[in-house]
């Protein structure tokens, strides 16, 4: 599940900032970052979300939309009704987290270092 704010909100806010005028340098970079997140989520988000949804259906042996199943998983971990050591659980969390970073921050240094084999 991708985090908030959704792409449409990021784009709206970037547009508003551009309308008001954005200084060169860091402020400009922040706007470009926001648009980058929105663009990546629009382009590759649907496929990543579909893969996450499929893993959740199998992991929980349950049907429902992504939001519902993600909430069910959070609740199962909280209540202890799913074993935290279960390899499929950990695998799901790692894959989902990697997918989120692809969208949110592919240049996050620790993520890049892992990608490059560290």
């Amino acid at each position: 599940m991708f985090d908030r704010p959704a792409p449409s909100l990021l784009i709206a806010e970037a547009r508003r900032a551009l309308d008001a005028g954005v200084a060169a340098g860091f402020p400009q970079k922040v706007v470009a970052n926001a648009l980058g997140i929105a663009q990546r989520q629009l382009e590759t988000g649907p496929a990543l979300a579909e893969a996450e949804h499929a893993r959740l259906r199998e992991l929980l042996d349950q049907d429902g939309d992504l939001t519902t199943l993600n909430a069910a998983l959070a609740s199962a971990i909280r209540k202890g009704s799913i074993a935290v050591e279960a390899p499929q659980l950990v695998e799901h969390l790692i894959l989902t987290t990697v997918a989120k970073l692809e969208i949110d921050q592919p240049a996050y240094p620790a993520f890049k270092a892992w990608r490059e084999g560290a």
Partner: peptide, 13 residues
């Protein structure tokens, strides 16, 4: 704010 929007998406890191 645009800054807040980007920081919010840093929770995933």
């Amino acid at each position: 704010s645009i800054e807040a929007g980007v920081i919010a998406r840093r929770a995933s890191e």
